[in-house]
């Protein structure tokens, strides 16, 4: 089963990428229409997250209760990390970036993979942000 881990990860990523394209999440105009509650609000995109959660929730509940994956690897899904300021500030900063353009990490990567200059610029800037944070949070030895 251990040898199948990379193949399962590939399959999961592949299905995820297809889902992002099929649902229209890779078109920033769709996302902006969902976020624009004051003009021509199109709440339909909530169906994407809704159906994803409906499909995934029973599986997460099963793994959480069992404490193991199907092949028997121990996994703890009872998150005991506290709700802190870092989570709130980070979510707010992410929300600001997401709102101004309508692109979150998954769709950004998929659009960049299609060769679009805007997508590549977005992923480049996102990478800069992540690496900056990693460098700043790395403690000096």
């Amino acid at each position: 089963m251990k040898q199948l881990t990379p193949l399962i990860a590939l399959l999961s990523g592949l299905i995820f990428g297809c889902g992002l394209i099929l649902s229209g999440m890779t078109n920033p105009a769709n996302v902006r229409a969902f976020l624009d509650i004051s003009r021509d609000w199109n709440p339909a995109l909530a169906l994407v997250m809704g159906s994803a959660i409906v499909v995934a929730a029973p599986v997460f509940a099963w793994v959480r209760k069992r404490g193991k994956t199907l092949p028997g690897q121990v996994v703890d899904l009872n998150n005991r990390r506290p709700l802190d300021r870092r989570l709130l500030i980070g979510s707010a900063i992410f929300g600001a970036g997401w709102g101004m353009l309508g692109v979150c990490p998954g769709p950004g990567l998929v659009v960049a993979a299609s060769g679009d200059a805007g997508g590549l610029l977005f992923v480049g800037a996102m990478s800069v942000g992540m690496v900056l944070c990693q460098l700043l949070s790395r403690r000096p030895r």
């Binding site: 500030i89 979510s91 979150c104 977005f122 800069v128 942000g129 900056l132 944070c133």
Partner: peptide, 11 residues
């Protein structure tokens, strides 16, 4: 936008 998304999702 990309910069804010990178920093925000990290935090």
């Amino acid at each position: 936008s990309g910069l804010l998304v990178g920093i925000g999702t990290h935090l």
